[in-house]
Simulated scan of single mutants.
Amino acid sequence: MDVIDSWTGALACQLQTALRLSNEAFADRLGVHRRTVGDWHARPDITPRAEIQSALDTVYERSPAPVRSRFARLTQPATDTAAQTLRVAIAVVRRGAEVLLVQRRDDGALRWQFPAGIVKPGGSAEAVAISETHGETGVHCAVQEALGERVHPVSGALCGYYLAEYLAGEATNRDTAENASVTWVPITSLTRFIPADRIYRPVLDALGVSA
């Protein structure tokens, strides 16, 4: 495991992204005020105080291997500005009147979301959406259309959304370190699992969900 000599706001935010935590959850994990995490996003070159450096060390050292792996990919040197932008591909997999969700372990809480994966520099977001869906859930799918991109309001990552159609496979939890459950839910009940204000509007439109 790599040793972080000195944490900066940027590195702390990348650890937050690797952990897939909201600002509030990340602040609670570290024992700091939520405003402190917001400052790191606004001022990535800031150097946290010594006690916060120690708290970041502890959270990093206690993180499971998949989290450390994601963090390593996020912090690897990039050759240009475009490569430094964290890109995430999100698969909205539809099977008839159902949509596929995974239940993430999020700082002790369980939160439903669509399957997603990090896109490496030069990689294909569509391919990642397909491969991550299969890797997490065992479901094979095919992308039908790109629904658009947005900068995620919590993580700051550039998220691309892809509407996909189910092809084959049983929905099973194949990533028990990160996910508690995998399931198909009725599209009409989607907002009972994920609040409508957290769902990218074109996703709701593509699924025919009014909110």
Rank of each mutant, 00 (worst) to 15 (best):
I194G: 02
V139Q: 01
Y200V: 00
H134F: 09
V182T: 14
V209K: 02
C141W: 13
G122V: 10
F71T: 01
A116E: 15
S124A: 02
T75G: 01
A109C: 04
V92A: 06
L204Y: 02
R73M: 05
Q84C: 07
V119F: 09
D197L: 07
P186I: 14
G169D: 04
S155I: 10
W112S: 14
T183E: 11
L207H: 05
A177E: 15
S155Q: 12
A168H: 04
L167M: 11
H134V: 03
Q113G: 11
N179S: 15
L190Y: 07
T85P: 00
P77D: 11
Q84N: 11
E145S: 14
T191K: 02
Y200I: 01
L167F: 02
S155W: 08
A125T: 02
D80T: 08
D80W: 11
R111F: 06
I130F: 06
E165L: 06
A72T: 10
R104T: 14
G123F: 08
A109Q: 07
V92G: 00
T183W: 02
V182I: 10
A177K: 12
Q144Y: 09
T191G: 04
P153S: 14
Q84E: 15
L163N: 00
A168Y: 03
A78I: 11
S210W: 02
V99T: 15
K120T: 13
A206I: 02
F193V: 08
P186H: 04
S69P: 00
A89H: 07
S155Y: 11
T191L: 06
W184A: 04
I187E: 10
G156R: 11
P77L: 13
D80E: 11
A89C: 09
P202Y: 13
D107M: 09
A157S: 15
